[in-house]
Design a protein around this nucleic acid. Sequence first.
DNA 1: GTCTATATTAGGATAGAC
DNA 2: GTCTATCCTAATATAGAC
Lengths: 202, 202
Amino acid sequence: MKNRAKPTNRQGGAVTAEKLREEAARLFWEKGYAATTTREIAESLGVQRASIYYHIESKEELLYDLCVESLRNIRSAVATAVADKSDPLDRVRAMIRAHVVSMLEDREKHATMLTELRALSAPRRAEIVRLRDEYESLVRAIVSEAQEAGVLWKEASAKELELALLNLLNWTIFWYRTDGELSPEDLAKLFEKIYLGGVART
Amino acid sequence: MKNRAKPTNRQGGAVTAEKLREEAARLFWEKGYAATTTREIAESLGVQRASIYYHIESKEELLYDLCVESLRNIRSAVATAVADKSDPLDRVRAMIRAHVVSMLEDREKHATMLTELRALSAPRRAEIVRLRDEYESLVRAIVSEAQEAGVLWKEASAKELELALLNLLNWTIFWYRTDGELSPEDLAKLFEKIYLGGVART
DNA sequence: GTCTATATTAGGATAGAC
DNA sequence: GTCTATCCTAATATAGAC
């Protein structure tokens, strides 16, 4: 057996920028960005501290890339989910489902993006805020269309309804457990029912 | 003029544990607990770094005290608000109002408590989790009573309805601005309407 | 692509004077 | 109750060998 390309790390494969980002997302979510050290990231991957700098320029780059990926993923999930729906209420339902499922299936990344924005330097933060605003515009447009079609309240603005919806969905990252009773789909159904119909018995 | 007790800091008064906690809450919320340095806290108060250790034992103590205070305040606000109501639906409404107003009027403290728990050492974290669970039990009891009285859904459990309610309310800390269009009371009314009645036009 | 070794700075906390 | 001075550790990142 030739020993070329024999890795000395414990993960079996070469450390790639991809693996780095995965592990970073996990640790950033577990301990927070500022409290996570590059030492820990390297240790988790079974390599020396210096080795990770072959793949990345800085710790902040890991956070930035992760935020970009998170926002691209959720935006694309929602856009795809509503693409083949024309009924305004169906589009709202599809959006809720896609947002919740996408968010919870890649929870570490989305949670980090949603809560660690302030750790980025000003230029990178501005870029992420721009992407986030773009996503919020998509959500708001879907809400607004439903209002115009007469199937959602008009007593509140599209902005207010959008913020309330994201409130209801996003906080889930803080308590959702993969080993819990409710699947992402179950939660999406619950939130859809509550958002559209409320919890009061009629 | 005698110059005894003349403070050299820029704040005009003596630095007290109270002022320390206020400033810490502000900075912890602005930059996160781990990214906030004791140097910055001292600088904001106009004193030398060493001086703050006369009032506290460690940076972590600031976070812990702040979490305890936050949970005591919101619990007491909600308990007081529902105390004189007997109608189950009125109690739910009063709880929403008190939670939102209390949370937003002392936003830095509550936000820090809600998001920086993981920075505490295990014993202190356990203590805060216990207080938080106590508060959640109060919320759940109010929801549960309303279900038993037949005025809220029973298709979902009290736990699910409680989690969904706190979702809807808590995420507000991430976007609420004191200079925005909506007051805490306005937001409480909006959330009350959405939570109980949903946003679909009937 | 990963290693050893290290430069460099920052951060929490303490000692002891006033 | 605050100051100056400093200890000590931990952290990001780089240099250069293999």
